[in-house]
Each structure stands twice: as C-alpha cells, then as structure tokens.
Amino acid sequence: MSQETWTIYALGGGFGHLQRALALARQATRQQHVHLLVNSRYWPWVQPHLTALFDPAARANLQVSWRSPDLGRAATRAWIEHSLLTAPGDRLIVDTFPRGLVGELATLLSRLPIPRILVHRDLNPDYVRVQNLRRFVTRCYDQILIPGEGSQVPFADLPTAQLLAPWLLYAAAELPSVAIARSRLGFAHDPRPLAIVLAAGRADELTTYGQLLATLHDHYPQLCWCCLAPNLPPDCPSALWRSLYPALAVLPAATLVVGGGGYHTVYECQALNRPLIALPRSRLYDRQQARLQRQSDHQPITIVRSLAETLTAVEHQLCTGNAVRSPETWQFTSGIAAAVAAIRVL
C-alpha cells in the first residue's frame, strides 16, 4: 500500500463540502492515508456514522480535523496554517474555495511544494471577478476537477480542468432496494408512496422545512411524508422526522423529494431519477438557482419559491402520477473513482 497522504481542505458551511470530501476519502483511503480539514456544523452529527461509511481498514487511514465555524477567522487561519505547514501531506485537494474560506490559502499555497488540486463546485462570478480568481487558480493549482457541475462554471475553460460525474457517497450497486430503504425509515408496512423532505442547508432554515412538512402532510394524506434532518425542525411532527445519515442510503424509498438546490440534493435525485421540488436558497458563493435551472434540462426538477408554489407542484406531480412511481433500479456513475485515478497520476 502506498504511504501517501492526501490532505483535503473542505471548509465551508452546510453538508456539501464535508460530504464531497467524505466521498473522496471513502475511495481514497483504500490505498492511502487521508487527512480531512473541515469546519461544518454537521460534523459532530456525521462523525458517529463513519463506521457504517468506511470499512475498518479504510477508517484506519482516515484522520479528520474539525474546528467549529464559531472559532473566528484569526484562529481558523492559524489552525489551517499550522496544519498545512507542519503536515502538508503529498497532495493538497481544496474544495470549492481556491483562496480558502477566509483567504488563508492565498499566501500559503506557494509555500507548499506539493501537487494542488481544486475541486470546482460552482462559484459566485462576482467573487471570481473581484478576487481575480481565474489568474490565481491558473497560477496555484495543477489540476481542476469539476464533479457534476458541467462546463458553465467559472474555471471550466481553463486548460487543467476536467469534467467528472457528480461525487456521491455510494456507488449504484451499494444502494439498498426500495423495500430495505423504506424499512430503514420505518415505513415498511405503510402502503402509500413515500415523499421525503430533505432538510439540508443552514440550521436556521430548518423552520421552513418543519412548516413545509406539516403543511404537505395535512394537504396530501395520500402520500406518506417524512423529513430527514439532523435535528427535529420546529413545527415538524416528531413521528415524521428521521435523523439518518447519509440521505442517499434511504433515498431509494422516495417517490418524490422536496428540498433545496444544494449539490447533493440535486445530484442524488438525478442519480436515482427521483422528481425533485426545489426551493433554491440564497448563498454567498453557491448558485442554487443556476444549478437547478441547468439541471432541469436533464432531470425532473420543479423550481418553486413559496409554499403556495410547492403545493401546486406537488399537486402537479400527483396528477401526472410522477409522485407515486418508484423505479426499483437505477444506473449512475459517481465521479469518485475517476477523480482518485486523476489525482493519483498527477
């Protein structure tokens, strides 16, 4: 086994940065050590689930360093500088933010004489422009991997860019059957089609999802509703709340998904060909609306902006029958294996 260590910088809020890093680590730790640097608020909740995600040998190759996002900019900058200067590893893989979440990588990268790879999720073009990021990325990164976001993202035309399939935690063959997924959610004996509300995103958005689930549950009793969230959202009936991770492990049970426009919500629904009713959320760097509009050409997505529009969209899905179909088979390719191969040969 190679003794290489890959360092993955995946700071950033929500699930996306953490989850892409875990997906890459899950494959990479089969052959080398991986050190994750993360600050997602969800990490303490995700951590106990690692034993189910990684087999024991791979888990032994994984080291995770976490700091709370409440740590402050100066302390976070100091932590990252210390981590990377004392133990940079053999490859540095940076998720989404070329200069680091608080700009701490801008002067640090040139002091790290190792191959540097940027994982390019979509990025606010205003940020790209005001920080002159195209020049920075061209100068500081040896490789740009674009998992799932296609050719419309800001650095897709740079010569070192490589388009890949979305990075998902599981391969198609690893997913459970519809029956097993329903059983995991506790709805094995309910004959109704199952609709899942994915309450990802920021913690303060949980209220919206709680109200949403309660209303949908009242309006459409012909569907069985449940909400996946780390914590019980306010107003959400507790009997309909499930605190399971990762969502992909139970998503085959869904005939309809309601959620935001974040990376994994969109691409996991695409992988399983599940209809998604999506409320695009405003983010400083991510462009959920753009992702949803782009992907609506390739998968069944209805973009809504209010509860009233959500009700109309569910109504439409019921009338067309889309909300009650649940394909038992799916075929998709995660971009993880190709990414690991590309990084390894760098």
């Binding site: 809020g13 940065h17 979440l101 608080v102 422009r129 005001v130 983010r283």
Partner: peptide, 14 residues
C-alpha cells in the same frame, strides 16, 4: 451593487 466586502468573512458560508 456587488457586495465584494462580504467575501471571505463568513466561516459558515457555502
């Protein structure tokens, strides 16, 4: 308006 001063400040941003 472009709110460039907001970038690289928020540790919870995505």
């Amino acid at each position: 308006a472009v709110t460039s001063t907001d970038f690289e400040q928020d540790l919870d941003a995505s």
